[in-house]
Amino acid sequence: MPDDPGRAKSTFEGFLDTYFNIFNKPIEIVRENIVGPLKNKNPPKYYHRRYKRIPSIDECSVGDEVCLYEANEQYKRDMKVESQILIILRHRLLECEFYWSDDKKEKCKKQQDDYKTAETNWFVKYGDLGAKANVLEAYMKQKHRMIWERRHGEVGTGMKET
């Protein structure tokens, strides 16, 4: 057995150990004394850029163009992120339906519900605004929807009789 501590090494095994140490020891010394401390000093960076959340459009002062611009840029970023989330959920649903084909109604119910909820929420926030929409138009859409709900009830349930 090679792991037996009482056994003497053969000449060939001693030669291999010496040959291995000639090439391996300098690499181990460099790794332990130089690379290791430097690696721990500089932790790896998170690869996504993180933007600080800024005040939304309703918190901006009248005439504050910088705040309006920043709110509009954040609106665009949020729209891109939520659109990508919707795409991911759609792909999960399609993959589930493809995998389960005949049993997709029962097996893919959670994915179907998640996608429908996300799609509805996306449409409530961004739908019917067009390609060149900005944060002010989205804010006005939200305001008009809230006024409608106060007067007539939930959107999609029809108008209340007054």
Rank of each mutant, 00 (worst) to 15 (best):
D3K: 04
D3R: 04
G6M: 01
G6P: 01
R7M: 03
R7H: 03
R7W: 05
K9C: 11
S10L: 02
T11M: 07
G14E: 15
F15L: 03
L16K: 08
T18P: 10
F20P: 09
F20R: 14
I22S: 09
F23M: 00
K25A: 15
P26S: 08
P26H: 09
P26R: 10
I27S: 13
I29Q: 06
E32T: 12
N33W: 15
I34H: 00
I34Q: 04
I34D: 01
P37Q: 02
K39F: 06
K41F: 14
K41R: 15
K41I: 14
P44N: 13
P44D: 15
K45A: 11
K45Y: 08
Y47K: 11
Y47I: 11
H48W: 01
R50T: 05
R50K: 14
Y51V: 00
S56G: 07
D58N: 13
D58Y: 13
C60K: 00
S61Q: 14
V62H: 12
C67D: 02
C67M: 02
C67S: 00
Y69R: 06
N72S: 03
N72C: 06
N72D: 06
Y75H: 11
K76C: 01
K76T: 05
M79R: 12
K80D: 05
K80Q: 10
V81S: 02
E82W: 04
E82K: 10
I85C: 11
L86E: 11
I88C: 09
L89E: 03
L89K: 05
L89G: 03
R90T: 00
R92T: 09
L94G: 02
L94H: 05
C96Y: 06
C96H: 03
F98Y: 12
F98E: 15
W100D: 13
D102N: 02
D103H: 09
K105N: 10
K105D: 12
E106F: 00
K107Y: 04
C108P: 06
K109W: 06
Q111G: 00
Q111R: 11
D113R: 09
D113G: 06
D113L: 08
D114F: 06
D114Y: 08
T117Y: 02
E119Q: 01
E119I: 02
E119C: 01
T120W: 01
T120A: 05
F123E: 15
F123N: 15
K125S: 10
Y126G: 00
G127E: 07
D128E: 14
D128N: 10
D128V: 03
L129S: 13
G130Q: 06
A131D: 15
A133T: 10
L136S: 03
L136Y: 02
A138V: 10
K141G: 07
Q142H: 13
M146N: 01
I147L: 14
W148A: 02
E149G: 01
E149P: 02
H152Y: 12
E154P: 00
E154N: 09
E154V: 09
G156R: 04
K160H: 09
E161N: 02
T162L: 05
T162Y: 05
